[in-house]
Design a protein around this nucleic acid. Structure first.
Lengths: 210, 210
DNA sequence: TGTACATCAGTGAACGCGCGTTCACTGATGTAC
DNA sequence: TGTACATCAGTGAACGCGCGTTCACTGATGTAC
């Protein structure tokens, strides 16, 4: 078992706090959000079971920190995608949707701690701030789109962003993870792309021949 | 604590198997999918911790049975909704979407065991059959819709059903459950209804003034 | 209708396990002088 | 540059706990005759 990815530099670990977060991320993927244990995270970081208490209040606190880091990364990616799509409101919006799925794919550990571990996003202020920042990007992108919509059929921007968030989340949960042999003939990426495309056409933002 | 909802009729319980399933459903809502324990289910049913082993192979087996019952109910509801919407393909389709959300609302325990407990749907044949039956209704409804779509923009029916499934699931996970104080200004019902509406317009199935 | 007996559905004690957490401790590090 | 000392970040033993599961058992039920 060469589990220990973090090398000890002697009696002191050097960077135990982050090593524990990293261990959490991999464990949560392997064992599921609740199968994760503090003891095992400590083991993987190569320290005793008591050591984590120098850095975290307890198990919950560690998970929360992992989720917080996830939301920060997530928000950064969403912002980057949004900016990259500019100045086209449409391109920017579509890019954020794609960024959502890409994040879930590339950061499964973060995704699990954020959305499946049972942490209360609203309870921890640091978490809430980061989560809000991410969601704000999406709402912003939807706001930009509004200008291009037929005025008679213009839903509130936050409704649009909620729709896209829900669609993205649903695609991730049902088709981007879970057991292989999930019977979908389409990739999660295709599903999200096509789904958003049809939705945007419904908003009058894409022509029938575009 | 008047936890015991099932009354014992003496030494023999009478209907322990189902009582354990029922206990699972309530516990899973209260404690989360993994916080659920076999011992506690037994306690709630008023029997010793060893009794469940007369009816289930173990913890996992019990959860699986709860999920299976959930998928059966779910499939029944979807079929009923579909039939009720007939003969209008559109009405039938929209009704299945609504049925999805209604099921999640009214059967949170089932929903959790089905989608959040980590049971492998593909692994257990009985589970898979019931799940397939439910999903088949949705795909069927999408198939019906195809006839009304502009031929040049007609995605595969199973793609449409996957879109709707993902949107419904996302709405449920993000807005129909979880901590109160979820900041959405829209109800899950409104979000799903409006989201599906926009999507269907994108398919050319609803006119701009309908 | 009564009885013997097989089968069924529970009990309760016991097990080993790993967990989260606390505690007094000690080795390593950094800093004042 | 050297030394005393405070602080920091670990150790390892111990705790109480509840879990899942097994086991020999026993009370209740159903059935053959």
């Amino acid at each position: 078992m060469a589990e220990k990815t973090e090398t000890r530099k002697g009696y002191h670990h050097g960077n135990l706090r982050q090593a524990l977060v990293d261990a959490t991320l991999t464990l949560v993927v392997e064992k599921g959000p609740q199968g994760f244990t503090l003891s095992e995270a400590a083991r993987q970081a190569g320290v005793s079971a008591a050591a984590p208490y120098r850095h975290f209040k307890g198990r919950e606190d560690l998970i929360e920190e992992a989720a917080r880091q996830g939301f920060e990364i997530f928000a950064d990616l969403m912002e980057a995608a949004y900016n990259k799509g500019q100045p086209s409101a449409l391109a920017a919006f579509e890019a954020t949707g794609r960024a959502y799925l890409a994040f879930a794919r590339n950061n499964p550990g973060h995704y699990i701690t954020m959305f499946e571990s049972g942490v209360s996003i609203t309870a921890a202020p640091a978490l809430k701030d980061a989560a809000d920042r991410a969601f704000f990007v999406l709402t912003n992108a939807a706001e930009d789109l509004s200008a291009h919509m037929p005025a008679d059929r213009r839903p509130p921007a936050s409704m649009v962003s909620h729709h896209i968030w829900a669609l993205s989340h649903g695609v991730v949960e049902l088709f981007a993870r879970g057991q292989p042999g999930s019977k979908s003939p389409f990739s999660a990426e295709d599903l999200l792309e096509s789904g958003i495309g049809i939705y945007l056409r419904g908003l009058g933002l894409i022509g029938a021949d575009e």
